[in-house]
């Protein structure tokens, strides 16, 4: 069987899609990691955080008031002992999970409220004990079942934290409450919570304007969304230019095929299939190669690779159509 010698432009097309996929993975992973680290160092994972004190109100009052607000996580931190109490309502972003699972709103339904479960930072794993394949951690004389381990590769305070369910009966800490906001406007959420607490206790919670925490103090603000959009535009244009270049190199072949009576539809589908045979494996190889270097395979990386390959592919359709309009004699006499 004779092996067809690949054309130079096809090799370039392969290489460029390989590189595009590879870079998409790397850049998106870098951006994701940065966001994770900043979240891990500052201690919240939503778009914003509200810090407030509710002087005179009990933890129970606060928790029951917060229960009515969706898309939030309520925290109460003990910075000295690295213990965080949490109450989750609705869909929330998790800290970087290493094993097991994080809390979800099902953990806070009435019949499960008495369960002592904990998610621990990776450095706390050594403090756990194992019984019948289940890990437990002791906190102030109470045993908690470990349901998950969180942490970052770099040393962040998250690695040393134990997160337990918000439990007003068993554990007290500071009188500062933090609300991680995932849905809705931060001010509106606080206004709703204030009303709920006020209705329940006749006390008005005091919002605390919190200073910058964690990495945000050192790293300058950096618009990752803009960076991501620009990177994607850059990669897409590259895939478009190489697609055009690839299609342009096919003029003679198209002319010959047209000369021998090949139909337009068949011609277009053949060319697009050829292109697909190059771009798809290149994209997959690039992505797989990229995944060797990235720390976590994210859906966003897969999406970015798919979009760039798809756009490079789609753009060839009008180019090939345009090529069909070129006179056969003109192409062949050149």
């Amino acid at each position: 069987m004779q092996i067809k010698k690949p054309r130079v432009v096809s090799i370039f097309a392969f290489l460029i899609f390989f590189v595009i996929s590879f870079i998409s993975c790397i850049v998106i992973d870098e951006i994701r990691q940065r966001a994770n680290l900043i979240s891990a160092s500052r201690g919240y994972y939503g778009k914003s955080q509200i810090v407030f004190a509710a002087d005179g109100a009990s933890d129970k009052d606060v928790m029951e008031s917060v229960k009515k607000i969706h898309g939030i996580a309520l925290y109460k931190d003990d910075d000295i002992n690295n213990i965080r109490q949490i109450f989750v309502n609705g869909n929330c972003n998790n800290p970087p999970l290493r094993s097991g699972r994080f809390f979800n709103e099902k953990d806070f339904v009435e019949d499960k409220s008495s369960e002592n479960i904990a998610v621990i930072g990776k450095n706390k794993v050594s403090e756990t004990t194992e019984t019948n394949g289940q890990n437990y951690i002791m906190l102030q004389g109470v045993s908690y079942t470990v349901i998950g381990v969180v942490g970052t590769d770099e040393e962040t305070p998250l690695n040393n934290t134990v997160i337990i369910k918000f439990n007003h009966d068993s554990y007290s800490g500071t009188k500062i409450y933090k609300i991680d906001v995932f849905d809705g406007n931060e001010d509106l959420v606080f206004s709703d919570i204030s009303k709920e607490i006020e209705n329940k206790t006749h006390l008005v919670p005091r919002k605390i304007i919190f200073e910058k925490v964690g990495l945000e103090r050192i790293l300058p603000e950096f618009n990752q969304k803009n960076l991501y959009i620009l990177v994607m535009i850059c990669l897409l244009i590259s895939s478009v230019t190489i697609s055009m270049e690839w299609a342009n190199a096919l003029k003679r072949r198209i002319a010959v095929k047209r000369l021998v009576g090949c139909g337009k539809f068949r011609l277009i589908s053949e060319i697009l299939f050829d292109y697909f045979k190059i771009s798809l494996p290149a994209g997959i190889f690039g992505m797989l190669f990229g995944f060797i270097f990235v720390k976590e395979i994210s859906l966003l990386s897969l999406f970015a690779v798919a979009i760039s390959v798809l756009c490079g592919f789609i753009v060839t359709i009008p180019i090939v159509k345009k090529l069909l309009k070129v006179s056969v004699s003109e192409v062949l006499t050149r």
């Binding site: 160092s41 040393e155 962040t156 305070p157």
Partner: peptide, 18 residues
């Protein structure tokens, strides 16, 4: 003992290299 300073240093340095 909090290691906050050490962790901030190492994380911010790795951010720069990223």
């Amino acid at each position: 003992g909090s290691n906050v300073i050490k962790s901030l240093t190492s994380v911010s340095e790795s951010e720069l290299s990223r």
